[in-house]
């Protein structure tokens, strides 16, 4: 008789401990970095460490932000990430739509191929890419870096949007056609609004992948570095609390961006109309 409540309590326990684990997993490192960034020189070297945010100081942060080129690099990084997001959606969403709606020969091979691009090591590509980029004038430009980052983010964008479009019943589109829409109008008025939350998720990932990518960004630029690549060169010879400040700044835009689009992530209309 007591079986049901006990198992329910057990399930609740598992559920909440899972949530707690996830929170700790994500938040603890961020918190520690924030502590280092705002703890000042003394805070970083104190031992045993204090886990409480006492005697915070903005000194490290201010000093860091005053470093030459940080702002330019941040702006450049955001530009590259924004372009990456745009390119991977513009290319990935149509590819995903085709994968979801049309049966064509070699479809599964195409799916495989899309993922396989991720298997190609960037390190091998670096030299030929650099040479080619110099030749066509893309070297040391935001567009050039964004193109490489798009190659990294595209498989994800295509596959996510394909499963997204598959989840939207075909009848909705057909109804739109019957009631007077062209194919494109039906896509814009029906499919796109319903797919928006998922597309926002794909966009976030493209943004974050680009923002965090350091290898291609370092190799393909000299003066127009992204923040990540720039910090890599600067922080190597900085004191520890400086590095924390840099690390914290790297996390910040991703988090802010995710907050900005979270409304689309959760604005589910209840696509399933069954």
């Amino acid at each position: 008789m007591t079986g049901a409540p006990v198992s329910r309590r057990l399930r609740g326990l598992v559920f909440w401990s899972g949530i707690a684990m996830l929170c700790v997993w994500v938040l603890a490192p961020i918190y520690l970095i924030a502590l280092g960034a705002f703890g000042g020189r003394a805070g970083v070297f104190r031992w045993p460490k204090s886990l409480m945010p006492w005697d915070t100081t903005l000194a490290a942060m201010q000093a860091f932000l005053a470093v030459d080129g940080v702002w330019a690099a941040a702006l450049n990084g955001a530009l590259v990430a924004g372009l990456t997001m745009l390119f991977s959606l513009l290319l990935g969403a149509p590819a995903g739509y085709a994968l979801a709606r049309y049966a064509f020969a070699g479809q599964s091979a195409f799916r495989m191929l899309v993922v396989l691009t991720r298997a190609f090591p960037l390190a091998i590509l670096a030299l030929p890419l650099t040479v080619t980029f110099i030749r066509v004038g893309l070297y040391d430009t935001a567009v050039g870096v964004a193109l490489v980052h798009t190659a990294l983010a595209l498989p994800f964008a295509a596959l996510v949007s394909s499963s997204l479009f598959m989840g939207i019943p075909r009848e909705l589109e057909e109804a739109a056609w019957v009631f007077g829409c062209t194919g494109f109008q039906a896509f814009r008025k029906i499919v796109l609004p319903l797919a928006l939350p998922g597309l926002a998720a794909a966009a976030i990932f493209a943004f974050v992948i680009s923002w965090n990518e350091v290898f291609a960004a370092s190799v393909l630029t000299v003066r127009n570095k992204t923040l990540t690549a720039y910090l890599l060169t600067v922080l190597a010879e900085s004191p520890l609390h400086f590095r924390f400040a840099g690390g914290f700044l790297l996390i910040l835009p991703s988090v802010v961006f995710m907050f900005a689009v979270r409304k689309y992530l959760f604005a589910m209309w209840g696509v399933a109309n069954r």
Partner: peptide
């Protein structure tokens, strides 16, 4: 005009 089996009412 058409009425679909699963209604196909636009959810948004």
């Amino acid at each position: 005009a058409m009425v679909f089996q699963n209604y196909a009412v636009f959810p948004h």
